[in-house]
Structures are given as C-alpha cells and as structure tokens.
Design a protein around this nucleic acid. Sequence first.
DNA 1: TCCTTGCATGATCATCTGTTCACATATGAT
DNA 2: ATCATATGTGAACAGATGATCATGCAAGGA
Lengths: 118, 118
Amino acid sequence: MVNTACGSSTQHQENVRKVRESMLSEREFLFMAELFKALGDYTRIRILSALAINELCVCALAEVLDMSQSAISHQLRLLRAAKLVRYRKEGKNVYYSLDDDHVRNLLAQGSDHIHEIG
Amino acid sequence: MVNTACGSSTQHQENVRKVRESMLSEREFLFMAELFKALGDYTRIRILSALAINELCVCALAEVLDMSQSAISHQLRLLRAAKLVRYRKEGKNVYYSLDDDHVRNLLAQGSDHIHEIG
DNA sequence: TCCTTGCATGATCATCTGTTCACATATGAT
DNA sequence: ATCATATGTGAACAGATGATCATGCAAGGA
C-alpha cells in the first residue's frame, strides 16, 4: 500500500475525489465481477452462445461442444448461479435456455467488441 | 467424451445441427472469453469503472482503490492486452482511460444486469 | 551527476478454476 | 422390479490467477 499521493497537485486530488464519489458499492462491483467471470470462460461462452440460438438439453450441449456431459453439467451449475440460464425438465431430459434478453445483449456486445478490435 | 446421442429423436438432431451451423469460430470464442475474463475481476472492474468517470494516472488509481501501485500496474497490463484501456505519458506520469465507448457500454450492460436480478 | 519519483515487470506463493472420475439420483421402458 | 438413460455432484488433481516483494528503468529536479 503506502500510496503517498504521487502528485499532490490540485488536479490530481480533485480527480481522485470525483471518482471516489461516483464509484459503485463494493457489493455491486462484486456482483459485476461474478457476472463477467461467468461469461469469461471458453466453455461457458460457447454454452451461452449455443443457447442463444436454440434451447438445448444437456446431452445436446455436450454433443455440440464435444465435451463430457459431466463437464457441461458442472458449468451449467455456475451459469444457473449467475442467473444467466433457465431450465425446464421434460421426462428424463433437462432443457436449458438463456435467462433473458439481457444475456443476449451482453453476448452481442461482446461479439461486437471483438469484431471491432480485430 | 463418448456422447452417445442421448435422444436420437429427429428434433434433437435437428437442434444440434442448427446450433452447430450458427456457432462462431473457435478463435472468436477465445477472444470473447478473454474479453469477459478481463472484465471478470473485482480489481479490474473497479479500475475500468473509475476510468469510465475520469482519466487517471496509475498512482491515482492506486489511491482510489487503496491498493499497491504494483498490483494496479499488473492489472493495467492485462487491460491493455485486452484493448480495454488507452494510455498517454505526460512527464513521469502515465494517464489511463477507457479505450472506447464500447467498453463503456459493456460496463453499463453489466451494471443493468446486476440491478435487474437484485 | 546523483537522487527521487512514477511506473513496469519477473519471481514467488497461496488460492482459485475447470476437467476428469466415480458415483448418486431420477425417470421411463421392459 | 430391473435396467438403461439423462443429469447432478463430490473428490482430486493440474493449470491458471492475483497479490506481494524486489528490482529495473525512465524522467525530472537538486
């Protein structure tokens, strides 16, 4: 730590004060970090992108991503915890889908961003 | 692996085919995962949120977040790699800011999402 | 020139993460 | 009832991650 105020200039202190006042709460930042963390994995982003196209059961997801059912199931657990997916049971199968259009928007924004920066 | 096609129903296979066709490339998913991974950390999301309010030098960021300059600097390195921030040098100081409005939109979307789900 | 300041970075280490494996549960079919 | 199938989950292990510490480097002031 020991941040001895690099520049003690008026502008510096004014910026620090202004930013401090406008920052969200610790709780909000923790939630946002969890949200993006849930999106920030190669497997999970593919799961969400697949569900953005069509509702799918677990075994279909495993087939699409060419991964074990267990691995998919573990990741779906995290996505449920982050409220990014819904699910409904039908017989022996469990069908997953995106929780709402908000998630779809986040995916679209992410896609836009990477296509912009090449 | 060994995904023995849970349901061999026509609908199941049709869904798998449709989703497979519409999925992005491995490269694109890797980029998106990296993007969200960069956003998915308590320290980095606070750095970005601070920069969304005002351009800041490294020491000001350290002061705002009450963290060591070294820790901030390491995280800024990742944010630069993800093209989420810009920087300009001025004398001994280095001033960081958000790379573009796209980043601002992602932050706003994230904020919206967490406020929706409570 | 020498020193201080602001920033960057390699090494280290504790912690977190994601997959696999084994197994449990549940539902439907025979 | 028995069995196969679809899914969920705990343990465990390898690899990734984030803060700290020490140090390096560049720029400005004495």
